[in-house]
Design a protein around this nucleic acid. Sequence first.
DNA 1: GATGAATGAGGATTCATTCAT
DNA 2: CATGAATGAATCCTCATTCAT
Lengths: 233, 233, 233, 233
Amino acid sequence: MSLSKLFCDKSAAFSAKHERRKEARPGELLDAALDLFVEKGFAATRVEEVAAHAGVSKGTLFLYFSSKEELLKEVVRHNISGHFKDWNNQFECFQGSTAEMLGYCMSAWWERVGATRASGISKLMVCEARNFPDIAAFYQQEVIAPGQALIRRILQRGMDRGEFRQMELDYAVYSVIAPMMFLILAKHSNGVCVQDQAEMDPKKYIAAQLGTILHGLSMPPGDLAQPAENARA
Amino acid sequence: MSLSKLFCDKSAAFSAKHERRKEARPGELLDAALDLFVEKGFAATRVEEVAAHAGVSKGTLFLYFSSKEELLKEVVRHNISGHFKDWNNQFECFQGSTAEMLGYCMSAWWERVGATRASGISKLMVCEARNFPDIAAFYQQEVIAPGQALIRRILQRGMDRGEFRQMELDYAVYSVIAPMMFLILAKHSNGVCVQDQAEMDPKKYIAAQLGTILHGLSMPPGDLAQPAENARA
Amino acid sequence: MSLSKLFCDKSAAFSAKHERRKEARPGELLDAALDLFVEKGFAATRVEEVAAHAGVSKGTLFLYFSSKEELLKEVVRHNISGHFKDWNNQFECFQGSTAEMLGYCMSAWWERVGATRASGISKLMVCEARNFPDIAAFYQQEVIAPGQALIRRILQRGMDRGEFRQMELDYAVYSVIAPMMFLILAKHSNGVCVQDQAEMDPKKYIAAQLGTILHGLSMPPGDLAQPAENARA
Amino acid sequence: MSLSKLFCDKSAAFSAKHERRKEARPGELLDAALDLFVEKGFAATRVEEVAAHAGVSKGTLFLYFSSKEELLKEVVRHNISGHFKDWNNQFECFQGSTAEMLGYCMSAWWERVGATRASGISKLMVCEARNFPDIAAFYQQEVIAPGQALIRRILQRGMDRGEFRQMELDYAVYSVIAPMMFLILAKHSNGVCVQDQAEMDPKKYIAAQLGTILHGLSMPPGDLAQPAENARA
DNA sequence: GATGAATGAGGATTCATTCAT
DNA sequence: CATGAATGAATCCTCATTCAT
């Protein structure tokens, strides 16, 4: 069964009005700012660098953003995906098993978020949350909450359908979130998470994590078949 | 009274408060610096704050650390545990199942690292790695590499003993690491990872993640028994 | 009206005040810096003072000079005259007696260097040479060496033409240099060289020193005897 | 005729009382301070360096000198020679020609001042006079004035005895002072005055300057003539 | 709108001076 | 007396922000 068949047709309706104003403002500045904030941190990034990366002068930046902090806020707003409405819709229509749904979710997330520049937002928020509580709260409300809610619904669906074992959702959600967050950090933290980043294939990583999430590392219980004649010394 | 007694007394009484302070200063400063760097980031932390948190003046800090950057380096060095030798030894002697071993490991890690202030180092490194590549490399070599190696050995043991299924270790290690890293971030990122941090019990979190890691979320295959037409309570 | 006229007008009117300032700034800063460095020494001069003397703010100074030390270097470079090429040319064409030439030289030096603010450079170099060996070496190469060379040529001319007695040039050059250097110090050292600086007329000083250099203090031998019909072509 | 014969026996009587207190204070500190102030300038010298050079701790320095500036004052006071009383006495008894007297003076100055560490005082004063007008005034009064007075007396003696030509003493004194000051600067200014300091022999330098001062650079008129045991009444 | 020169508050660092031991 | 740890005012330098062109 192809994945595309699994969904109904309701496509997402984008919020048009609020976006318009921001679209008018040089997206290059927001992109440059995101890249640099992620790379060097907010405090260590100079607005002049941001402007230079966007190909404009320092003064121009302040034409569009009243302050460096306001720029950060806009960066966060601009990079917060409207994916959730879409994804929630897709959840409603999904026909396959919950395992498939979870796999689809993680792949889709990687393609639409993780692999893009927008993924840096998460690292940025992790690093700057303490300094900008209001931005953190906004992010938490716009991204974390809907994200966790979606995953909860998926896991609940699995439990409801007898596919997943009974579990405490408050903790189980992190089994899905943690590997994705880790992948983002690995991508943005210069070897602090993974030894040789170039060696890591994100798709294989996601596949492997999905495998663990679904089945764990342990030998399937019934699967007594291959004993492993090895054992300890 | 012997001469040596005289000398001992003298040296013992030698400069009580002043000396004690001098011994204690660097450690107090390192602790304060760790806390603040983790909380606010390196660039956004003022040395004067660090000094104040350690109960000394700005100038005193520079008596012990030649620069703010050197302070950061020392913070990292100082907080890098020598746990791995110990843990590797324990690995050698461990008698129980590999699942138990993994559970023991994660709990021990939480108690000795995760729950302590030292855990902040990981968040700090994630945030500052790009700005301080040499420190990141040092951390990677002293912490990341040995940590991953230990986990690989554990997983390999599980596979060798037929407890764990065959897996590609290069990716499987992250099934263990990601949840722990996530826990640290949750602790230090002001709600950006978990909605209500106060609600989360780290021990339950670790238990839950261990459960997932070992057995996955899926219903055990043979266990088809109770399909659960239920839904929750 | 031709197109070129339009362009000319436009470019001529282009940014009047702002640009003019920008052109002028570095020179004003260099002048202020020279004055203050000479007056108070490099270390005792604050960059803010320099900026204030040039009528700009602290930050502006750093727009043009990357550091206080770089400012010093530029001060030296900027004040090192290209007089030597000119003077060497004049040496070649000079027709009069070598005594006249020496007198002309000392007067010209006074007018073009000694009496100007540039004279402070020499005092500055004397005072700061130990702290900035590379600048000292540069000054030595650009000023001291050519200066001594010129004087040697003059003295040599005098000897060659039988006007001057045979002398060891390595030491004789200082008979010319020392009085000029002394005059500079007198000008800049607040009474440490001469008791009442206001009383001293530099032209009379130079005339007097030239007299000594040429004829010494001693009574002309024989005096009476004969005016010296010797020498010169 | 040996030089020693030229003098009568009045030796100098040292001022005993005021010296006593200063003698009690570590001369090492004053010596170290002089060396460093001369080498690096007052502002650029750290009191800790002075203390270290004198082999004591920073705190000890402040036991003897209430401030860095007071240290400078004491350095100047300590290094101001009491030579003038002695030299003035010698002037009174000198039997030889004034040319001999001048030569003796310059040699004696070199041996007792110029060649010693004390010579640095002059360079120090030249450099710091603007920043410490009161010290400069003190130095001027204790050293410059008596020094110039002595030289004036010598030149006057030469004129009175018909050995020297008539000259304006206000300017003529500098013919003697400038070469000596220059020698000091050459010694302390790291190549800014003389190209290769190592090459210069101070005694030859002084002999050469004395030659110029006495007879000038010009060919003796008539040459032929000789000695001319003075002229004019 | 765009520019970039100018600003000055803010932060890292130094160092003269103090003072408990 | 001597020490050297501690201090904090002073100074260099940075960089977000303003504004005249």
